[in-house]
C-alpha cells in the first residue's frame, strides 16, 4: 500500500465561513475509505478541492508516486490524472443512451479533434459490455438514460467513473434514495472497485458505511475528528458528541 493522494494542511474560507480548516487526509491505493460527518462538515468542499472545482486558501494536495501537486490544475486535467467523481445527485446525460453515456467516459484521447475523428473499436465495445455487466445494466444499453430509475442512474454514473479507469474514485452519497436491495448492490460494486483502486465514499448513512466495512474518517467543522475502523470511531466520545449523539436525538 502506497500513498496515492495526500491532502495536508488545507483550509478554505467562503465569505467568512470556514468550510475546511487545516484538513489533512491520506488515501492509499488500493483502499476503500468512508468519510462521514454532519452537514457542513466540509465533505463536499473536500471533494471540490481535490477535483479542482475549488481552490484552497492554503495547503497542499499531492498526487501519485511522483508527488505532483494538483493545485492549479483544471477539473479536466485532474480527471485525466485518474480521479473520477460522482455527484450527490445522479448526473448522467439523460438525453443519451446508456451506451453513449459509457462510451463518452471510456478512457480515450480527450481532445476535440481526436474525439471528432474517433471510431468505435472492438475493445471499446467489449469494455462497455464489461462495465454494463459490472453495474447490472447489460440489458439497458440502448435505453435513454433519462428513462432509468433513480438507482439505475446512480449505478450508471458509477459505471461511467469505472469506464474512466481512474485510480481514485470520489463517490458522494451513492446510496441516497435507494432501496435496501439497491444499496446492497451498490456496496458490492464499490467494494469490488476498491480491490484495484482507491475509492472514497462520502456518506451520511451509518448502515451503509457499516456494510462497506472499511476505514472511516470523521469530519467535523472542516477538520478530521477521528480516523479508524467504524467501531473505533463510534466509540470515540467526541464523535458521539458531535455526530452520533445528534443523529440519535
Amino acid at each position: 500500500m502506497s500513498s496515492l493522494l495526500e491532502v495536508s494542511g488545507v483550509s478554505k474560507t467562503f465569505d467568512g465561513f470556514r468550510a475546511i480548516n487545516d484538513l489533512s487526509i491520506q488515501i492509499n491505493e488500493p483502499e476503500l475509505r468512508a468519510i462521514i460527518g454532519p452537514n457542513g462538515a466540509g465533505k463536499t468542499t473536500f471533494m471540490d478541492i481535490v477535483t479542482g472545482k475549488t481552490k484552497p486558501d492554503v495547503g497542499r494536495v499531492v498526487w501519485g508516486e511522483r508527488n505532483e501537486s494538483l493545485l492549479g490544475l483544471s477539473e479536466a486535467e485532474i480527471a485525466n490524472k485518474g480521479i473520477g467523481r460522482k455527484f450527490q445527485k445522479p448526473t448522467v446525460f439523460e438525453d443519451q443512451t446508456v451506451r453513449q453515456n459509457l462510451a463518452m467516459a471510456l478512457k480515450n484521447p480527450r481532445g476535440p479533434f481526436a474525439v471528432l475523428f474517433h471510431r468505435k473499436t472492438e475493445e471499446g465495445a467489449a469494455r462497455i459490455e464489461e462495465i454494463a455487466a459490472e453495474i447490472g445494466l447489460s440489458d439497458q444499453l440502448t435505453r435513454t438514460a433519462g428513462e432509468l430509475s433513480h438507482g439505475q442512474k446512480q449505478w450508471l454514473e458509477i459505471g461511467m467513473l469505472l469506464a474512466q479507469d481512474p485510480r481514485l474514485l470520489l463517490v458522494d452519497e451513492p446510496a441516497a434514495g435507494m432501496t435496501a436491495e439497491e444499496r446492497e448492490k451498490t456496496t458490492d460494486i464499490l467494494r469490488r472497485a476498491a480491490q484495484t483502486r482507491a475509492v472514497v465514499v462520502v456518506e451520511h448513512d451509518m448502515e451503509f458505511v457499516r456494510r462497506l466495512d472499511c476505514k472511516v474518517t470523521v469530519l467535523h467543522e472542516g477538520h478530521v475528528l477521528a480516523e479508524g475502523s467504524l467501531d473505533h470511531v463510534t466509540a470515540d466520545p467526541m464523535v458521539i458528541d458531535v455526530y452520533l449523539g445528534r443523529s440519535d436525538a
Binding site: 473520477g84 448526473t91 446525460f93 463518452m104 480527450r110 474525439v115 474517433h118
Partner: peptide
C-alpha cells in the same frame, strides 16, 4: 462521439469536465 460530448456540455457542463 463528438455529438455526445457536445450535447453533454449542453446538459451538464460540470459532469463533462469531471469526465476529463
Amino acid at each position: 462521439k463528438m455529438g455526445s460530448v457536445v450535447k453533454g456540455i449542453r446538459d451538464n457542463e460540470a459532469r463533462v469536465r469531471f469526465l476529463g
